[in-house]
Write a protein that binds this DNA or RNA. Structure first.
Lengths: 139, 139
DNA sequence: CCTTGACCTTCCAGTATCTGGAAGCCTTAT
DNA sequence: ATAAGGCTTCCAGATACTGGAAGGTCAAGG
């Protein structure tokens, strides 16, 4: 298979596949003309990577997952630990975004949004030395 | 004020402040010895930037906010529109993370996490041609 | 045989937002 | 005089691609 086929079947852009080869995630063979020649196992790996990426795993985490996947003697505990770490990272990120969201939503609500210059959003950002809109939740 | 003072008072690392100068967000003066010399207004701007950044605004959004802040004839509608756009971006991001979280949490729960190699997480990632764990929510 | 268009190749640069480090000058205190 | 600490600039790296330029390859049509 050429890169175009693999791109279509894996759902990953050809550019991304080349990038994954650069960083050693896949090692396709080469045809006589210099074109990359992908085996089914390469396609399989790429699809695996694509799905791991949509779950938000970093490239390095994907690399580990792939290693575990290929190690038939792995302990599932290792996979689970990796996934749990990632889950926690996601939870942290969500918490952070929700905090931003709460503050911002409050500010937006307070702003008239008309042709006058008065703006509680800017006022809040300009508050000296305190977390922005830190009492938005209580408001 | 030298950069160290401003860093401490604004809560931003000196490195970041230099970077903000590079991209034109602040324009401190220079003392005879070449050191950056910050006015109160520079400190004020940096603090504004720091708070806008903690609310998740991008640098370019911060640049616009700063312009609006300094334009005493602005219309608050512009600020509000910017904030609303950002709010929507945050909501989208949260939705995406929650979807990941749901799938991943389900998989983690299914994995024994012991010394055996069987692992539903890896199995799911290896599923050919379908979104990973796409029925996790129903499970 | 030649051309055309679609594919493929490599390499370089840019995105976003810093962060770390090296090499070296300035200031202050001892 | 020297040492510590702060300041300067510049380069590189991290993350994960993405776009584009310049050029080789291949299959089809005339």
């Amino acid at each position: 298979m050429n890169i175009g086929d693999v791109a279509e079947r894996s759902g990953l852009p050809a550019k991304t596949i080349r990038f994954y080869e650069d960083i050693g995630l896949v090692k396709p063979m080469r045809a006589a003309n210099g074109y990359r020649s992908f085996r089914d196992s390469d396609l399989h790996k790429l699809a695996f990577l694509g799905r791991a990426r949509t779950l938000g795993f970093s490239i390095e985490e994907c690399r580990l997952l792939l290693e575990l996947y290929e190690d038939k003697g792995r302990e599932s505990a290792q996979v689970k630990a990796l996934a749990e770490d990632h889950l926690k990272a996601i939870d942290d990120k969500i918490a952070q975004l929700r905090s931003m969201r709460a503050t911002l939503a409050h500010l937006v609500q307070c702003c008239a949004g008309d042709d006058r210059p008065d703006c509680p959003i800017l006022d809040d950002l300009a508050q000296p030395s305190q977390a922005p809109g830190r009492d938005a939740h209580r408001a």
